[in-house]
Amino acid sequence: MSNAPKISAGERVRYKPQIYMPQMSIFWWVKDRAYVFFIIRELTSLVVAAYVILMMIQINALSQGPEAWQALTDWFATPFSIGLHIVFLILLIFHTLTWFWVAPTAMVVRIGSKKVPGSILIAGNIAMWLIISLAIGWLIVSI
């Protein structure tokens, strides 16, 4: 560079870089498909919370008597409620599958000295999930 200072012989100059620090956009999570997937996974926690609050409302209605329960089940039959529950179900299944998907990374299960491969753990979890779901479903329907 023409404007660079002259350095005389014997003088030592330490290079001081002018470091450029790029700023992260608040929309960083749309940059990559994996990040979008991640954010959706994280937002399923909102559905988890919303649904257990709805469960609290169900328990409350049930404890208040047949009329309150009837009013709630009438609301459940509205198209809005059914649509909402379908959205909830899709996101909750997403939560379930992503949860099973990452579970083997946190836990190393051994049989003897051999590590059980992650894919077997995932399959086992899914099988257990289906069995538990059937059991709970049977309990609710058969009473």
């Binding site: 179900l89 779901s133 059937l134």
Partner: peptide
């Protein structure tokens, strides 16, 4: 996370969808 992953979907599917739509008899 584990409990909700295993247990919540069946609750939503039954109480929120299958029973209101009449696929299953309401308890």
């Amino acid at each position: 996370g584990t409990l909700s992953a295993f247990l919540l979907p069946v609750h939503v599917a039954l109480i929120g969808i299958a029973i209101p739509l009449g696929w299953l008899e309401a308890p």
